[in-house]
Design a protein around this nucleic acid. Structure first.
Lengths: 236, 236
DNA sequence: TATAGCGCATGATTTTTATCATGTTTTTAG
DNA sequence: CTAAAAACATGATAAAAATCATGCGCTATA
């Protein structure tokens, strides 16, 4: 079983320099530290469910989480991948709606929960944090718009290559420097790319044949990142 | 040529009850009123261009604007449609980046420009407005995520029906109660749906044959909204 | 007012992608 | 440890969508 760092206080939290909250004033960090509730979710467990009401925000201390939407026909669409330092659950809270997506742990994950009232009150008194939140939302909106454009305009082959690079950007490599450090099923990759599972499987096999990746079950190694970038046909 | 209402002051502006700014405190509204610069953009004119730096936010007083992205291969993707009361340009400003999309007037449009420094300083001092902005961003993010899911999972026929309904929601009908009150080219509709222009033309013809719409050049009349909703296969 | 160009329309064809079918391998649970 | 289920893989086929091609009609403009 995964072993976690000590995160009993926000002041000693491993994420204290990476999270949005690092910009909050010390006094508020102390408040958060008092009221936060830490929790460990095992792989596959749900932090919150689409359709339910938000009671606070979640702050990932260590681990990996996927945020996914159900399409009108019940098919999962993975909207975002989250890692240590990321905050989630704020979107529904800020727009005063139910959760529009479910959050599920991709591996054993340590999470701090910050109650709604506290979050809102800190946000009200700490302008810096409010601006950080606005920046965070703006960045997410930007990413969503770019993804939207690619989804509308790029063929699946390019989108799969892009998705593999995105996974690498998000979670990085294992110690060997080439294995993606997350285990996703082919179906999950498909739900990230926005395609059928079989298409993903087929294209991954092609990428393997082309020598760009190596496949070993759910372990994916990136052998030629440059070619993958070329395959993804990215401008930036 | 279009004739516009008087909008010389924010206090008498037709949008003073609908815009996000309606939640700003009176004192700040007065500041904005002093520093704003009003302008009329003719159909086809650009308010700002993807890639350039934002110097403020734009507030539509009256008119219609499209916000669009260029895909990596240069194809337009329409991200949002805006109308009187809508604000634009804030995303890039808040995340401190260049514009990631261009804003182009779909018809003669009256716009107020609010300089960056003023916008930021009001946002700093007016918590209510900051929360409104966070809510706005959250709502946009939500819409983008839903659109993303539909783009990934729904066939073009459903997406076109949904787009027509979306246009209706955004701009409404003309006096006759059935004609969409915006003139978009087939290509623009395609760039909203995320498909090829020919596919859009073909499907619109089908919708016409099915008696759901009536086509008269760029004039589109919705004859059977219920069937259109069914065709869009929407859950909510 | 002639005409070049654009937007609209539609047919034919090709490409892309999803679906169905089937077998194999890997996990999971009893 | 073993059976059942889930995940992976791959071929065959069907469906969806893009592309190419052509023609028509409107409109901007020289």
């Amino acid at each position: 079983m995964t072993h976690f760092h000590d995160a009993t206080t926000c002041q000693s939290c491993a994420q204290r320099f990476t999270s949005v909250f690092c910009k909050a004033k010390q006094e508020f960090i102390a408040d958060i530290n008092e009221q936060k509730i830490c929790n460990v979710y095992k792989k596959g467990q749900t932090l919150f469910n689409e359709g339910s009401y938000p009671f606070g925000v979640y702050c990932i201390n260590d681990g990996k989480v996927k945020l996914s939407h159900l399409g009108d026909d019940g098919k999962e669409q993975i909207i975002r991948l989250l890692r240590g330092g990321d905050v989630l659950g704020y979107r529904a809270l800020l727009s005063g709606e139910r959760y529009s997506a479910s959050a599920i742990a991709l591996e054993d994950t340590q999470v701090c929960f910050i109650p709604k009232e506290l979050f809102i009150s800190v946000l009200k008194s700490d302008t810096g944090l409010a601006f950080e939140m606005m920046k965070l939302l703006s960045d997410e909106l930007h990413k969503a718009e770019v993804k939207l454009t690619h989804l509308a305009q790029k063929p699946i082959r390019e989108r799969l290559a892009e998705t593999l690079l995105f996974i690498k950007e998000t979670y990085g490599y294992e110690a060997d420097g080439i294995t993606l450090s997350v285990r996703l099923s082919r179906e999950e990759i498909a739900n990230l790319v926005g395609t059928a599972t079989e298409s993903t499987i087929r294209l991954l096999s092609e990428f393997k044949k082309d020598g760009m990746v190596e496949l070993d079950g759910k372990k994916i190694k990136i052998l030629r990142q440059k070619e993958l970038i070329k395959t993804a046909n990215l401008q930036d």
